[in-house]
Design a protein around this nucleic acid. Structure first.
Lengths: 152, 152
DNA sequence: ACGATCGGACGACACTTGTCTTAGGATACG
DNA sequence: CGTATCCTAAGACAAGTGTCGTCCGATCGT
């Protein structure tokens, strides 16, 4: 059966982001957060109505992306898929559809057409060296030094 | 006016790919190509009907993505946007929505979670060296794998 | 000239997405 | 208690997407 993960449209993604940001929230909290727009990459002035947010949350729940919990007197929603999961899906899809399934092509495209942060470039280089060293010299010492990948 | 480029749904993308592949084609040619599925990254056995393909091509035309040309007795469609254009749009969108607008984060994600082709990895490294040399200019051309002492 | 084909224009239809309105049940407060 | 609040449930509705069915005029083969 392999149920293909349902798509998560952009509007739903917007509210999902809020949940990721604060871990959990009620409809109203999401609404307020979106209006005050005090979080990552969000367009201000979303004139959303309470009902709209409720609908989105509802659809996300039917898609098994969030779960609702009866706390207090209002439902509290919490995400059950991480941002990483969604990124995975989208990236995978993009690579499959426009880069012959080869992530390397996407990487090349990104580096060529988008200016990347110098710091990140450094990280990328380090990562690549590590990888090539690992594959080219597999009989090498496997030094798996932990990377400081967590920003903030 | 800056008309935001209309979205190109996946089904339309499928036929558009055929046009990219062969430069141009009639409805029937696209249909056959899709059925015989003899091209890059295409799922076989698409039970598409002539009408479906015609519709898709039609919609693509209204979206100004392809143009039709009356040749012979059947219309011939030709793409007016390149695969690069579409890639650009999609990547941009993805980066904006899930990577805080920072392409570098996507690159990192890709390298970490998807195995990339060694050859492409090489290309990437070369590209990065070139870039860093260009920005932090060193007027040097030696390819002596400069070790990136992670000490920033 | 006639019927079989081909190609195209129209329109249909179900489902998804984006946004809401409103009715109805709980709660809180004077 | 009565009313203002808040919440949820249930629809509604216009676009956009995914896939066709058909009717119709132009063509082809015999």
């Amino acid at each position: 059966m392999a149920k293909p993960p349902l798509s998560i449209p952009d509007s739903e993604l917007d509210v999902l982001k809020v949940l990721w940001d604060r871990g959990q929230a009620t409809v109203r909290e999401v609404l307020e957060t979106l209006k005050e727009a005090g979080h990552v990459g969000n367009k201000e002035g979303k004139p959303w109505s309470y009902a709209t947010v409720a609908t989105l949350l509802d659809r996300l729940e039917t898609k098994k992306v969030v779960v609702s919990d009866r706390a207090d007197q209002a439902f509290t929603y919490r995400p059950v898929v991480s941002v990483g999961d969604i990124q995975q899906r989208r990236v995978e899809s993009l690579v499959d559809k426009l880069y012959q399934g080869e992530p390397g092509l996407l990487v090349l495209h990104l580096l060529k057409s988008h200016p990347i942060d110098p710091g990140q470039a450094l990280e990328v280089r380090a990562l690549l060296e590590e990888m090539s060293a690992e594959s080219a010299d597999k009989s090498r010492k496997s030094s798996t030094h932990p990377k400081p990948g967590h920003s903030a």
